[in-house]
């Protein structure tokens, strides 16, 4: 004869199971979220670099953006080396910011530009230094254009040095750099300005960048 005792209703198992389920869900979700959080995709800046997005004030950012765009134009104008580097007068005539003396130029500290083209063999180098004439929170900008034409054959361009670099210095009395290697500039207190591009912002927001 089998005897079974009727168990009274108990809600204990419901509470325990629910608590376990909550823990499991939190752990799994937390684990997946932790796995999906991407480390900040912003570039890790070296000590001699500063971020155009974070480290420049809004007026300096404006100058940097214009100078960056101008560098591309200057690069195009210089072309394959048959063309000369554009002079300041040319750039002003072309109304190319930040060289043109307009109202924006006045707002941004009235930068006085100096242009030099030092000879360096097969490397074509052009330097543009902008020093603010107005007192205020404006630093100096130094545009370094370098084209290395040695051993170039069409279609096999290997540029060891980026075609342009923009450097910044807080001291408005800084001298025109004689030597434009990275080390020489760093020693004189110049900092290379690094742009924060749109793709980096998209990657930061979207995580893996694949939507």
């Amino acid at each position: 004869m089998e005897q079974q005792i009727v168990k009274p209703l108990s809600t204990r198992s419901e509470v325990i199971c629910l608590a376990m389920m909550v823990v499991v869900v939190v752990m799994i979700s937390g684990g997946v979220i932790a796995g999906r959080i991407r480390p900040n995709d912003e570039k890790v800046l070296k000590p001699h670099q500063l971020s155009a997005f974070r480290d420049l004030n809004s007026l300096e950012q404006g100058t940097f953006n214009d100078l960056y765009a101008a560098a591309m134009e200057i690069n195009e104008l210089h072309g394959t080396g048959d063309e000369e580097w554009p002079s300041l007068a040319t750039l002003e005539d072309e109304c190319m910011p930040p060289f043109v003396k307009d109202r924006v130029w006045k707002k941004r500290g009235r930068l006085a530009w100096e242009h030099r083209v030092p000879w360096s063999g097969t490397r074509h180098v052009a330097l543009y230094l902008g020093v603010p004439r107005d007192a205020g929170s404006f630093g100096c900008f130094f545009l370094v254009m370098i084209h290395d034409h040695a051993g170039k054959r069409p279609g096999t361009e290997t540029v060891e040095h980026p075609p342009c670099e923009i450097w910044h210095h807080d001291d408005v009395n800084v001298a025109f750099p004689e030597i434009v290697t990275d080390e020489a500039l760093m020693v004189k207190g110049w900092k290379e300005v690094v742009a924060y591009k749109g793709e980096e912002e998209v990657q930061r927001l979207k995580g893996d960048g694949r939507s």
Binding site: V22, V26, R36, L205
Partner: peptide
């Protein structure tokens, strides 16, 4: 807020909604 990609925040979506429904 926790840093999931905003186009597919499935972990937090599922996690929160499941907890919400169960509780």
């Amino acid at each position: 807020v926790l840093g999931e990609p905003y186009t597919s925040p499935y972990a937090s979506l599922f996690g929160f909604c499941i907890l919400f429904g169960l509780v």
